[in-house]
Design a protein around this nucleic acid. Structure first.
Lengths: 345, 345
DNA sequence: CTGAAAGCGCTTACAG
DNA sequence: CTGAAAGCGCTTACAG
């Protein structure tokens, strides 16, 4: 059905080898033959066959991305950064989206199939048990995005530091009863954010009790990174006699759910309750949400660069890229005491 | 580097043909040889080479999705429906994301490359000029998602009807000065939503003047489907002496931007201004947004089914699937007169 | 039930 | 600068 290299060779009166050469921009071809080949190819509407090419070249120009919960806004943004970066390359992107963290394993397996792609980007999944082995002997390099493991390249945000920044912000204000809206305990990033918050808070001399945090169920949709989780968690907090006066959510999406719960309770943000999120989704700006920004776009584009680098130079030492989150102050918080702050964003 | 069919044939003491047979679940293989082959393959960690396989079979088990602006929430949801459906199939998904509608053309071209995929899903892009030809003679079938063209299978929402429903809702209330927040004029879906609204509104005897609609600029990010556009459009409306008392946005995301603008102006939703969106994104429920729901998940899964159907039976007549949007009433609107409503959601 | 062989559409030394 | 030929890793009639 398709027209091949043979068709154009015949019609141009040359061998298939020279046809191949012109399509691979090899130098040793005379200008005239190059031109006729190109013309004939154009006439016939020739397109190289992707599979044949990668089989012969013993390499493929596609990469795989294994992503849990693709409709998550954070991933969507990172993906956008990735795609923007890829649009100027010749690589294609194969996307494997896992409904839950459980499904990541088999999908990774699939993505690692020989000849399918040249490398894989594994998003936000903890590397556990046999996965490490599977990844090492898979033949293609994998780089971790929003995750960490000493044996693989990774790119992530300093979640602990983000938690610390949130705590510092709260400690420097007049907040008395902060609470934390945490995602699933299985989520490494969320755990680190909580931990950064907790340790910094305690370091100030105040006590951080377990009832100050609402943890999403392990089976929660999107690992607890959802409005629903933020909403219901906040509802619970609001039932207390002593209502919280500030909440740190481990993601913007949870913070948005919390905002809604607060409003429904007839309370005001930030007057009654201040809210801090994590991510800085595009919508957060318009919602006036104070948050810890992750450079999602950069994470995506860097991930691509790292993977390509690794594909081309497999023996480079493993590298970990960590971005620092930055506090973006907006309307959901107010700063009472403005000491210790050199720059306001 | 990789271990091939030859390795396992040798080690199992059989020919490569029989090895191939067991991996293709062909019937004519004795139980014993099947078992030894499988065992040896397991030992050696054999994986079939994807490219070689599709070259030999003359078919590939991957499909392509060409999507403008992948970080758009609507697409993310449709993609999720698609992926959920695909997870039980053996197909892989190649994603081509276009930063703008301009980039769709070249990406589609790329996606149509021979041997790359068995079919393509083209999202939300108007089929214009030469695209039709390119798509017809591309060799692989394409189905349109959230778009329409008589010559290709398509799956979409009845946007006009959604606009009509929004207008009817408003007409049955005490709203006096409704306005519309429209996305880019280049967007077919947005145009249809507006048109449905306009015609129904006028049919009631009221006049619909051009200054009742705020149209996003052609160069607006995400074709105007963004909080930023809803926000700025609403800001303009609020500068008027006679402020609107209801707004119909052509997407939820614009509606969310509008909500923020209203709040910042010190006005209340729905008391001062009622808001209706379009899509019913997951977050809309938690924001209490009244909207016209599109079954995004179903759109995604149906799209997959349609494409596979078309791949398998290329000569089936072209089919168009149209989903009816449904009005979901929530807190951003209030119904004064409750006549003509059998079921409240 | 099993094997030898041709073929899928390209790339790439090797000669010339 | 160009061609003949082998090879990439699999599938699939065709014989047996």
């Amino acid at each position: 059905m398709g027209i091949t290299i043979y068709d154009i060779a015949e019609r141009a009166g040359v061998s298939i080898a020279t046809v191949s050469r012109v399509f691979n921009a090899k130098p040793r071809v005379s200008k005239e033959t190059r031109e006729t080949v190109l013309r004939v190819a154009e006439e016939l509407g020739y397109q190289p066959h992707a599979s044949a090419r990668s089989l012969a070249r013993r390499q493929t120009e596609t990469i795989s991305a294994v992503i849990p919960m693709i409709s998550n806004n954070f991933f969507a943004e990172v993906l956008k950064g990735l795609q923007d970066r890829m649009s100027t390359s010749t690589y294609d992107l194969l996307v494997f989206s896992a409904p839950t963290l459980e499904d990541v394993r088999p999908l990774l397996e699939k993505a690692m199939h020989r000849g399918r792609s040249a490398g894989v980007l594994l998003f936000s999944a903890p590397v556990q048990n046999g996965m490490e082995v599977q990844m090492s002997k898979g033949g293609q390099p994998v780089v971790l995005v929003d995750s960490y493991h000493h044996a693989f390249d990774s790119i992530s945000t300093d979640n602990r530091r983000g938690g610390t920044a949130a705590a510092e912000f709260i400690l420097s204000s007049d907040v008395q009863r902060p609470v934390v809206l945490m995602a699933s305990p299985d989520s490494i990033p969320a755990s680190q954010r909580l931990e950064g918050f907790r340790s910094t808070y305690e370091a100030s001399g105040r006590t951080f009790s377990p009832d100050m945090v609402s943890v999403a169920s392990r089976s929660a949709e999107f690992d607890g990174f959802s409005e629903a989780c933020g909403y219901s968690g906040m509802k619970e907090f609001l039932k207390r006699d002593e209502k919280p006066d500030a909440v740190f959510a481990t993601s913007d999406i949870q913070a948005i759910g919390a905002m809604q719960a607060v409003r429904e309770a007839g309370l005001n943000v930030p007057e009654d309750i201040q809210i801090i999120g994590f991510d800085d989704l595009p919508m957060s700006r318009h919602l006036g949400l104070t948050t810890l920004r992750q450079p999602m776009h950069d994470i995506g584009s860097r991930a691509f660069d790292l993977l390509i680098e690794r594909i081309q130079r497999p023996d480079t030492p493993v590298a970990h890229t960590v971005f620092a989150p930055s506090l973006i102050e907006r309307q959901t918080t107010r700063r009472e005491t403005v000491h210790n702050l050199e720059t306001a964003s």
